[in-house]
Design a protein around this nucleic acid. Structure first.
Length: 482
RNA sequence: CGGGGUGUAGCGCAGUUUGGUAGCGCAUUUGGUUUGGGACCAAAGGGUCGCGGGUUCAAAUCCUGCCACCCCGACCA
């Protein structure tokens, strides 16, 4: 009887090896992260999902401020004339912008676009503000949402509106702008690895994959359980493309009028999708302790027995004093078994069980969500032991994800072999590339994969392009992507 | 925009073939007993069967038009 019920529970979440997209959908809906809204492609982020975004925000915002950036806010709507000022930019975004054409019942003289990104309106304002090199650099960031009218949407991974941050900076020299571009990519990488425990490959985007209007785009790429890559953050060196188009000038040190150098960078709620597809399993979410809204859930056992609830609340207080995010579920209407399954599905890192038997022995049962390993720990030094377990879990999750990523990464032997492997064993393929767009197009047509990046850490895998045989220029990572 | 699928209670579904009182499981509410891996008993609430036409004495069911959403492609953070 009990066995059957347990099987029924497992069936509630589709197994990822049976149907990966359905597994993802089951996990995000059943754990109450998100819901579909009445408007196609737009999602409602529920409290548990929003808490994940808040954790990301908090971490990144501190890093931005520590490197001298300030938060600002620019308007949601951008006049069409501004959007059209930079040619490549408008061509890149035009197909997916939403337009406001009426104010009340009155038709507007000029259409307003709902920002797909804010380079244009920010540059218009920068042009108005900037006078002298003494004001530089401008180091601004904004937390907001943007709208891109997508044809195919998936919660977190691709939605028509998404929450993000976009940094927009101006610098006196090209060198400073390049340093800023790389610094911000480095911050994204550190956040992914330290907070989300997601290992990423950092590098440069190819010409065809770069941001519309950018001089160069840098990216961090993560690999999901299904072997597909997720572009998890981008940092653009925009050179003087926009500053010239928007006539942003300043009087330089020599008295001459100059155009500043420009960067922009962003990460979005897409990271939450990555967080799920890197760590979670067939029982539901698995959250790294640092990002988990609740790190420890205490479940009293036989709580009507003398002293159990008192002890449970005592443990909660001890953990709170140690700055552990802890909660307790003493709802007598649910059985312990129900709670175990519930909070495992929610991905809470540690579960503490405390019952009469434990109290008698001066211990508590602790279960780690990632390994499901069950141990008894002493109630002496309880908070310290829990803190250590959280730290261990955080670092082991990163290492486990790194190991999985490496297992799904292979070196291309030859093109035919690559085509077969992309189908049979999806993951990162490392190969040499001549640099021509024709090879990129061919790879995409033959396998659906794309060049994810030219990694900073280059390996010498031969002298010739794995895709056309011409002399090779770069080592690249190739994968199918979200 | 192409291909596929689904719309019946909050969720998951049966009922449609062969028209005849709208059902089941879970969830929810109330009361009680329980509590170491999804507890049990009792009672209760909850529906324009996606929408519009049509056929019929009678439509969830047959005919017809539309809409919405999901998945897979192409395009994109």
């Amino acid at each position: 009887m009990a066995k059957k019920q347990n099987d029924d529970f497992v069936k509630e979440i589709t197994k990822m090896e049976d149907d990966f997209p359905q597994w993802y959908t089951d996990v995000i809906l059943k754990t109450d992260l998100v819901d579909y809204s009445p408007v196609k492609g737009f999602m409602v982020i529920k409290p548990y999902g929003y808490a994940l975004w808040e954790a990301i925000q908090k971490d990144l915002d501190a890093r931005f401020k520590a490197t001298g950036h300030k938060n600002v806010y620019f308007p949601l709507l951008i006049p069409e004339s501004l959007l059209n000022k930079e040619k490549e930019h408008v061509e890149g975004f035009a197909p997916e912008v939403a337009w406001v054409t009426h104010g009340g019942s009155q038709k507007l003289e000029e259409r307003l676009c709902v920002r797909p990104t804010s380079e244009t309106i920010i540059c218009a304002m920068y042009s108005k503000w900037l006078r002298s090199y003494r004001e530089l650099p401008y180091l601004y960031n904004q937390w907001c949402s943007v709208v891109r009218w997508e044809k195919a949407t998936r919660p977190f991974l691709r939605t028509s509106e998404f929450l993000w941050q976009e940094g927009h900076t101006l610098h006196e020299t090209a060198e400073e702008a390049q340093a800023e571009t790389l610094q911000m990519l480095g911050i994204y990488k550190a956040m992914c690895e330290e907070l989300l425990a997601i290992p990423v490959v950092d590098g440069l985007k190819s010409e065809s994959e770069k941001f519309a209007g950018a001089h160069q785009t840098y990216t961090i790429e993560a690999l999901m359980h299904d072997g597909k890559a997720l572009q998890s953050g981008t940092s653009h060196n925009l050179g003087q493309h926009f500053t010239k188009a928007f006539d942003i000038t300043f009087q330089g040190r020599t008295g001459e009028e100059e155009y500043p150098y420009h960067t922009s960078w962003g990460v979005s709620t897409r990271l939450i999708g990555g967080l799920i597809m890197v760590h979670s399993d067939n029982r539901g979410l698995v959250l790294p302790p640092k990002v988990a809204p609740t790190q420890v859930m205490i479940i009293p056992i036989a709580q009507n027995k003398e002293g159990v609830l008192d002890k449970a609340y005592e443990l909660k207080a001890a953990l709170q004093n140690a700055d552990v995010r802890v909660d307790i579920d003493d709802d007598a209407n649910y059985s312990p078994g129900w709670k175990f399954n519930q909070y495992e599905m929610k991905g809470m890192p540690l579960r503490v069980e405390i019952g009469p038997r434990d109290i008698e022995n001066g211990q508590a049962v602790v279960v780690r969500r990632d390994t499901l390993e069950k141990v008894s720990i002493s109630l002496d030094n309880f908070a310290e032991t829990i803190q250590e377990m959280l730290e261990t879990m955080q670092s082991e999750m990163l290492e486990r994800a790194r190991k999985e990523r490496d297992e799904k990464t292979y070196t291309i032997e030859n093109y035919e072999d690559f085509k077969i492997k992309q189908k049979e064993k999806p993951g990162f393929a490392k190969g040499m590339w001549c640099g021509c767009p024709e090879c990129e197009a061919k790879i995409k047509e033959d396998t659906g994969a794309t060049i994810r990046c030219i990694p900073f850490v280059q390996e010498d895998l031969g002298d010739t392009c794995h895709f056309c045989g011409k002399p090779a220029k770069h080592m690249v990572y190739v994968a199918r992507a979200y």
